Computed example of a mutant assay.
Amino acid sequence: MKIGMRNIKTSISVVLCVILFELLNREYPFYACIAAVVTLQSSISDSFKAGQNRLIGTAIGATVGLIFSYLPQFNFWVHAVYIGLGICMVIYLCNIFNKNDSISISCIVFSAIMTNLKGVPSYIYVINRTVDTCIGIIISILVNKYFNFKFFNKFK
């Protein structure tokens, strides 16, 4: 079995995310790498659609997460209840906006915000994760569009 172009393009996208984050001195390439892997599909139009769903899901999950992060955190049990209520709200909003393909990532982003805020203001965390996601989406769409067999044939 040979290695296919989607495999190669996904690998290139992830490597470019890591390199770009190093050059920009951004802290967490992980989030861009996730977006790149999820976004890169077998066609450019499918990649664009996957990127759009990823971005919409990130926006919904981040918005609800930001709102819930400002609720009073009395103790662990209240925080856990907030997480459950927030997940319900995220899924409900995705359904209302007819964005069912964004539900999973919305829930993941919401959960990341509610469980990873350790000494970082929530709005900063939300902005950084959204920017990181956009970087990964853009890189994978560009790689999918411009890296093809013709590109690789130049190096033979």
Rank of each mutant, 00 (worst) to 15 (best):
L93T: 04
V109H: 09
Y92S: 10
K118M: 07
T115N: 06
I103T: 06
R129C: 07
I127M: 14
T115D: 01
V120G: 01
I105M: 02
M114N: 02
K118Q: 14
K99F: 03
I96V: 12
I103Y: 01
S102D: 12
I113Y: 02
I105Y: 08
R129A: 10
M114H: 01
S111A: 12
T115P: 02
L117Y: 03
C94Q: 01
F110W: 03
Y92A: 09
L93P: 01
M114D: 03
L93E: 00
C107P: 00
I103N: 05
I108V: 14
L93F: 05
M114V: 04
N128I: 06
D101S: 15
L117C: 06
T130V: 09
N95G: 12
N128W: 02
F97E: 03
K99M: 11
Y92N: 04
I108C: 02
R129I: 14
L117M: 10
K99Q: 14
S111I: 08
I105Q: 04
N100D: 12
S106V: 04
N116A: 09
K118S: 15
V109C: 10
N100E: 13
T115C: 03
Y92Q: 05
V109G: 07
S104R: 11
K118L: 13
N128L: 04
I124Y: 12
S122W: 00
K99V: 07
S106K: 03
N116Y: 03
N100M: 05
V120W: 01
N116R: 07
F110A: 06
I96W: 02
R129V: 14
I108L: 09
D101Q: 14
N95Q: 13
T130S: 15
Y123Q: 12
Y125G: 08
I91P: 02
N100T: 13
G119K: 05
I108D: 00
Y125K: 07
N116D: 07
I108G: 00
I124A: 14
Y92M: 06
C107G: 12
S111K: 00
V109S: 07
Y125P: 04
V126F: 02
K118N: 15
I91E: 13
I124M: 14
I96D: 01
K99G: 00
V109A: 11
C107A: 11
L93K: 00
C94W: 00
P121A: 13
Y125R: 08
Y125Q: 06
V109R: 04
Y92G: 05
D101H: 12
S104A: 15
